[in-house]
Amino acid sequence: MTWRMPHEGDLHERTWMAFPNDGATLGADPAEQDGYYDAWSAVAHAVVEFEPVTMLVDPSKADRARRMLSSEIEIEIAPVDEFWFRDHGPTFVIDDERPGVLGAVDWIFNGWGAHEWAGWADAARHARLVAGLVGAEIVSSLLVNEGGGIHVDGEGTVLVTETVQLDPRRNPYADKARVEAELARTIGATKAVWLPRGLTRDYDDLGTNGHVDIVATIPTPGRLLLHQQRNPEHPDFAVSRQLREVLTQETDAAGRSFEIIDLPAPDVLRDREGFVDYSYVNHLVVNGGVIACGFGEERADARARDILEAAYPGRRAVTIDARRIFAGGGGIHCITQQQPKVLR
């Protein structure tokens, strides 16, 4: 078997999500909790305009989900603790030698490095649960990894971060060679591009320690969309410059140097917790569209839509306010997972 993770822009069967449930990342303030439910629901309703959506919902939240979600969104009742589905759900792959076969990589999920606040007993079972629901072959992995920690071009290139896959709280005995060999086996990656780090806020307690899907993505093979912080007062001003310098020296699996497209951050620098990591890179590509993060800045949000529509020709960009999602440690890409359509 030769598994390959398709590019996110390839045709999807559907998008998967998980409805928020009580826990550390939901917070304790009822008004803030309502904001999470509103944001998750808004993303689901935006996606379902382009492709089917299935939402895993904990039994305790079934009534709330049915009230908030339209009948177009399929609800699957199952135990849910963590609800950042990109990270703990399956990473879908296909086998080019067996048309019609769908695979589901089941990474080990340990709450982004076994944080004391994280509870992941249910989330760690979601990959196999979803694989059973869609009839996918399970691809078991001993690598502690999350879907937000990788981005691929569908042709062998994968973006990863040294502080994620080599995090001693995740993979204490790993080195680059071992990680690359496992990524080759599970998602068909023949060239790993290692970023030295992620954005500053992502190293806070509720962060992921440097997920790549808030920093850079590959809209088409040979091209990168890269987060750009333009304000020198923000620590990510230096970080984004460092990452750009690293990526200008890299090549993809085909040996091409990357064409780098800057995706500027919004103007806001702080929230009540400190410097923000607001990033338009954390978008979801869907059939015929792009679901983009919005941050309440009309001009910056519109500029991001223009850049995304140019990077993904023929797709319409739709902005959803993602500030509440970012307050919990991620963005729109972090709460969704695409299931590719397999051709028979």
Rank of each mutant, 00 (worst) to 15 (best):
D22Q: 02
T217Y: 09
D321L: 05
R67H: 15
A24F: 14
Q242V: 15
T91E: 09
A65E: 10
Q33K: 02
C334S: 01
P20R: 00
P52W: 00
W40L: 05
I320S: 04
T200M: 03
G147D: 14
L133T: 05
Y278F: 15
A311E: 06
Q229L: 02
P168D: 03
D29E: 07
S70Q: 04
R201D: 15
E162Y: 04
P52Q: 01
N231E: 02
D301V: 14
Y312S: 11
T208A: 04
A216T: 01
T157W: 02
W84Q: 08
P168S: 05
A104M: 06
E298F: 15
G119Q: 07
F92V: 08
K176I: 03
I335G: 07
E82S: 05
I261C: 11
Y312D: 09
T200C: 07
V93T: 10
R64C: 02
D306W: 05
G328N: 01
L225M: 07
R67E: 15
D63Q: 02
A124I: 03
Q165V: 05
P168H: 03
L102W: 11
K61S: 09
L69H: 08
T190R: 13
Q229N: 04
R128D: 05
P20A: 10
A304C: 15
T217I: 13
V286Y: 12
G330R: 00
A238W: 05
M1C: 13
S41C: 06
D22A: 09
G148Q: 02
H283L: 07
V48T: 03
N287S: 10
G296M: 07
G100T: 14
R185F: 12
D29N: 00
G147H: 11
F92D: 10
D167G: 00
P52N: 00
S41D: 00
E76D: 14
N21K: 00
F50K: 01
E51Y: 13
I138K: 11
P221V: 10
Q33W: 00
L247Y: 10
A127K: 00
A189M: 04
D236T: 06
E116L: 05
V268K: 08
L159T: 05
I320C: 08
G23N: 06
H211G: 15
N282K: 02
V80G: 01
D301T: 15
A44N: 11
E97L: 01
D122A: 12
P266F: 15
L69A: 13
Q229K: 11
R316C: 13
M5S: 13
V105W: 06
G135C: 00
H333I: 07
Q229P: 10
Q242P: 14
G89A: 09
I138Y: 09
L195P: 09
E74V: 07
T248Q: 07
E82N: 12
N110F: 03
M17V: 00
S71Y: 06
Y278W: 14
